[in-house]
Amino acid sequence: MTAPLIDPFHRAISYLRVSVTDRCDFRCVYCMSENMTFLPKKELLTLEELDRMCSAFVRLGVRKLRITGGEPLVRREIMTFFRAMSRHLQTGALDELTLTTNGSQLAKFAEDLADAGVRRINVSLDTLDQDKFARITRWGRLPQVMKGIDAAQKAGLRVKINTVALKGFNEDELHRLTDWCAERDMDLTFIEVMPMGDIGNEDRIGQYWSLNDLRARLAERSPLTDLPDRTGGPARYVRMESTGQKIGFITPLSHNFCESCNRVRITCTGEIYTCLGQEGHSDLRAPLRASESDAMLDDAIRAAIALKPKGHDFDYSRQQVDGQVSRHMSHTGG
């Protein structure tokens, strides 16, 4: 029962992303519809159940745990969970505990996160313009996020900025964003927009900005050197020689990264999705709640990993949103 988790394509599963809530205090236009219907709270895993679920994966070989949402820091008493997970860092069973956040709550929680053993966080930020930020997030306030980033760096957290590349929206901020990150000694990763969920009137194909094009624009300004760095996720990295900073590219559409996929995702209701770009999933909540022993849960986890597909089907090349999945990104977790 302690054998590592290996999928049908001989990929070891060492990275777990867990959504602790589907709720968020923003309504980013590529992630959610403005008037979201959230899950009833009784359907969510309790913090104790999340602890047991994550601990099972750690016992089965997961070395990196990323907490996502929604916005994970809006979950009530969430620091109780982070402090509980820190025991796996202390024993050496877990290499890294981290999170992806919109930054809105960091001013409140940055020091507590650092105390719990978090060393590195990702902050989602698509623009440095206050008006555009309000438009893309619908409900967000840029100064609040900037205060959160300040607090995170003051607490000693290594901050990486995640920016979704959106055609016609932040193309003109490409160099401003890279310069700002260089000045603050923050890594930067660009992400292609993915076809996740019904977001109303937003045009998926119109939003899509290929990172091949974005990288070419960066290269016009500075030589780029490919780096072998891997952080456990799908990003490929370069060093921008003019500044020395590290820039990542997550390219699920222009160049997928499925061959090296080492991760699975757990939703806040205990479903496991072994591929972000596929609808297939398995229920782990029922076996979790069926017995105080973890034997049924371990068996269910292994059965789910055995169904992990070779890759996703995201594709915009035919000018239609092929491979679109119905659930919102906030449901699966970042």
Rank of each mutant, 00 (worst) to 15 (best):
P4E: 08
I6S: 02
R11T: 01
I13V: 13
L16D: 01
V20C: 10
T21N: 09
D25Y: 05
Y30T: 05
M32Y: 02
T46N: 03
E48T: 13
D51Y: 12
M53Q: 07
M53C: 14
S55C: 06
F57P: 04
V58H: 05
L60I: 11
L60Q: 07
R63W: 01
K64S: 11
R75S: 06
R76Q: 14
M79T: 13
T80I: 11
F81P: 09
T98Y: 09
T98H: 10
L99Q: 04
Q105Y: 08
L106F: 03
A107T: 02
F109V: 10
A110F: 10
E111F: 01
D112Y: 05
D115S: 03
R119F: 01
S124D: 09
L128I: 02
D131E: 13
A134C: 02
R135T: 13
R135L: 06
I136D: 04
R138F: 08
W139M: 14
P143A: 06
Q144Y: 01
D150E: 13
K154F: 00
T163V: 13
A165P: 14
L166K: 00
E171H: 03
D172R: 11
R176A: 15
A182R: 00
F190E: 06
M194V: 09
D198Y: 12
G200A: 10
R204C: 03
R204A: 06
I205E: 03
Q207W: 09
L211C: 14
S222T: 15
G232H: 02
P234L: 07
R236N: 13
Y237A: 10
V238P: 07
M240R: 15
E241L: 12
K246F: 02
F249N: 05
T251K: 07
L253T: 14
S260E: 14
R265C: 07
E271D: 11
Y273H: 12
Q278Y: 00
R285P: 00
A290G: 15
E292C: 00
E292T: 00
D294P: 00
L297V: 09
A300D: 04
I301L: 09
I301M: 03
R318M: 01
G323M: 05
G323A: 08
Q324L: 12
S330I: 11
